[in-house]
Amino acid sequence: MQPNKTKLALQIGAVVLGALCASNVYADTFTASVTTIDDVTITQRAGYPLTFGSNMFTQASTTCTLQVSNLAGTAYPGGLLMRHDSTAAVAQGANFGALTGTGCVSGKNGVTPGIWDISGIPGGSVSILVTQVAQSPTTFTYTPDQACYVDYSADTTNDADRCLALTPGNVVSALLPVSAVAEADATGGGANAGTPQPGIVSLAVGGTVAIGATPLSASTAYNLAFQIDVTY
């Protein structure tokens, strides 16, 4: 998967100031300055590739879902993994990274939800768009309908930072935290508290594979494709 990166373009317009009277014409040269910021980047976190493992059946017209953010919070990735503060009550859900559906073996054998870290200017915000794309071969589809991103609160309210659901095709705005201190959302700390990183917001992605009318081939590796767009 090759995510898109939108570069920042800066333009300064020129303004001409002048004064004219009957006796003279006055002109002068003025200067201005501009400071650029780093391009926004997307990096897949080491050790967290998106994979369904060797668990898919070949049967046609079946589905398999890798859980990340639904099932009433039981698939919640937790503060430690997503790098946000929380009290001990906000732990990783038991179903995070589990497979369900008739198209695969249920459980977590060799399964990993994908984690991506988006970096930019601390205190800024980015727009995130996750999009479904066509697969190759076209005998199956993949929908990134199990995904969440960290919604930082920009204050220290207990447990205000959460991993909110990301719906494919819907743009969301995410804050890039200023510092860990600015997002310390657990009074006295907590066993499941993560540490916010300045200028970094993370998203977790699972999703659903649906096999069409043609069965898959046995003992074959298939690649999944989807798109992430991030802009300032």
Rank of each mutant, 00 (worst) to 15 (best):
C148M: 00
T187G: 05
D151C: 00
L175Q: 05
L166D: 01
A186L: 04
T214E: 02
Q146K: 12
L224C: 12
V172A: 04
C163S: 13
G169T: 12
S217V: 14
V230P: 00
A191K: 13
G188T: 06
I228K: 02
P198Q: 10
E183K: 04
L175A: 06
L224V: 11
T208K: 15
A221N: 09
S173K: 10
C148A: 13
I200D: 00
A180H: 05
L176W: 05
D151L: 03
V172P: 01
S202C: 10
A160G: 13
D161Y: 03
A174F: 01
T143K: 11
V201C: 12
T214S: 10
D145K: 07
L176F: 06
L176G: 02
A174C: 09
A147D: 05
L164D: 11
L176N: 04
C163E: 12
T167P: 01
V205S: 04
L164R: 08
V150N: 05
A147Q: 03
D159N: 15
Y149K: 15
T231D: 14
L166Y: 03
A154T: 07
P177K: 12
A165C: 05
A210F: 00
D185N: 15
S217M: 11
L216S: 10
Y149C: 10
S173H: 06
L166V: 14
I200C: 02
T156W: 05
T157R: 02
T167N: 06
V171I: 14
N170R: 00
T220G: 07
V172N: 07
S219Q: 14
P198A: 13
L224S: 05
G190W: 12
A193H: 03
Q197K: 04
E183V: 05
A193N: 00
N192R: 02
D151N: 13
L203N: 02
